[in-house]
Simulated scan of single mutants.
Amino acid sequence: MDLHQEEWWDKAQQDTNAVILDVRTEDEFSRGIIPGALNIDIYKGQGFIDAVDALDKSKSYYVYCAAGVRSGQACAIMGRLGFEKTHNLAGGFSQWKGPVAMP
């Protein structure tokens, strides 16, 4: 489900089961992240699928990338792997106006 950033961030903050997942490259990740984000690079292909499949499927995942396209793909892959609660950040990190941290 695509959410605009205010709703995405509000839900992530209120959700006690939330995991913020950054699917950008390590280089992108190193330049700034949404606080608390876990990084699994979607470009790793099967490595991404294996890493995501090992995550706790009972949690809610708030997924983002640079523009919202890769994270949308990640949400679709996660859905096929049995994740029921994935939320894509519409517009991605490039349009993010919320808090930013360094990893």
Rank of each mutant, 00 (worst) to 15 (best):
M1G: 13
D2L: 11
L3F: 02
E6S: 13
E7I: 09
W8S: 00
W9P: 01
W9L: 14
D10L: 05
D10F: 02
D10P: 04
K11S: 10
A12S: 15
A12T: 00
Q13K: 15
Q13V: 07
Q13M: 15
Q14S: 15
D15I: 00
V19A: 10
V23P: 12
T25G: 06
T25Y: 02
T25S: 15
E26G: 08
D27W: 08
D27M: 05
E28W: 05
E28A: 07
F29E: 00
F29I: 02
S30P: 07
S30N: 13
S30A: 15
R31L: 09
I33E: 05
I33A: 10
G36N: 09
G36P: 14
A37M: 01
L38Y: 05
I40E: 06
I40K: 05
I40G: 10
I42Q: 04
Y43F: 12
Y43P: 09
K44S: 14
G45L: 11
G45S: 14
G45M: 11
G45C: 03
Q46K: 13
Q46F: 09
G47H: 12
G47F: 01
G47K: 03
F48V: 03
F48M: 03
I49G: 10
D50Q: 13
D50E: 11
D53A: 15
D53S: 14
A54I: 00
L55Y: 03
D56L: 00
D56I: 00
K57H: 14
S58E: 14
S58C: 03
K59M: 05
S60Q: 04
S60R: 06
S60V: 10
Y61K: 04
Y61N: 04
Y62A: 00
Y62E: 07
V63A: 07
V63H: 06
Y64F: 11
Y64L: 03
C65D: 13
C65I: 01
C65M: 02
A66Y: 14
A66P: 05
A66T: 05
A66D: 11
V69C: 00
V69N: 13
S71M: 01
G72R: 03
Q73H: 12
C75N: 14
C75S: 12
C75P: 13
A76D: 14
A76L: 08
G79L: 07
R80K: 12
L81M: 08
L81C: 07
G82Y: 12
G82M: 04
F83Q: 01
K85I: 02
T86G: 14
N88R: 01
N88F: 10
L89G: 07
A90C: 04
A90E: 12
G91V: 09
G91R: 08
G91H: 12
G91F: 12
G91A: 06
G92D: 09
F93G: 06
S94A: 14
W96G: 10
K97A: 11
K97F: 00
G98W: 06
V100F: 09
V100P: 13
A101F: 05
M102G: 15
P103I: 02
